[in-house]
Amino acid sequence: MTKNPQKPLKPAAHPLDDLIRTERIPHIWCPGCGIGTVFSSTLKAIKGTGIPYDRFTMVSGIGCSARGAGYVKLDSFHTTHGRAIPFASGIKMANPDLNVIVFSGDGDLFAIGGNHFIHAARRNMDLTVVCVNNLTYGMTGGQVAATTPNRAKTTTTPFGNPDAPFNLPLMASASGASYVARWTILHTRDLTDSINEAMAKKGFSFIEVLSPCPINYGRRNKEKPLDTLKLYQERTIIKNGADPARADIDFDRGVILGKFVDIDRQTCDSMYNSVCRPCSDD
């Protein structure tokens, strides 16, 4: 006679379970991957706003991070590669009352979607863009990205990356973003607070989150997941208000974290109302 294993009467409920499509858990992210952490932080930040969940929507592109939209229990959109921002812009402009979160990866947002990113920032489109930066294309097996450090090994740079990576906070701030911050998955509390602050912020908010891709990036660059997190702990420095021009990712020199930009500028939808609808009652 076999005995059923002892189970608690009520299945344990994680405090974020009300925002997760629990029937789709476990998610596809590998052991040690940091996307789940960024996702948790984002959900915690949504909870922290106190705004009803049906006032939020999440849009993703394509890639590992972009699977986030599939796990969040909100109206959520998993779109095409690089196109999360213009899709989200359509949502925001058609219904400015919604809080629109773009959750995607560095390959999606900054290579194929780079043009959309700078234009949404220029317009100050009222979106909260959370970018999980794992320095590579994880979903396709670890190819060089627009964020891969110089000389790093990937499947398409077997001799090392000959190119230079983007400095994402610099790009965001130069393009006109209202809010720019960078954290790592180790800095969960700052990250959560920052996403929360960015959601409350009117305008284009951008949060870069450094996150390990142990399987497809770390493995080729002799970095175990815990090694990467040690780097985040030991080789980063929090400097709020730092010049984003100095925010290159160079762990030998130290990587700057914190809030780089927090300015007030009219958003795209409010400008549209004031410029194009001069006769309206709003």
């Binding site: 213009p86 989200a88 359509g90 402009m93 043009n115 959309h116 234009h119 309206s280």
Partner: peptide, 29 residues
């Protein structure tokens, strides 16, 4: 469009224009 309560946006390319109308459609318009 602004006259009738609608919204017009000129996007950065046709890829974005097409993406934006899909997003807008899901808001019910």
């Amino acid at each position: 469009l602004p006259d009738v309560g609608g919204t017009f946006i000129q996007m950065e390319d046709e890829i974005a224009a097409m993406a934006s109308i899909l997003g807008a459609a899901w808001t019910g318009v």
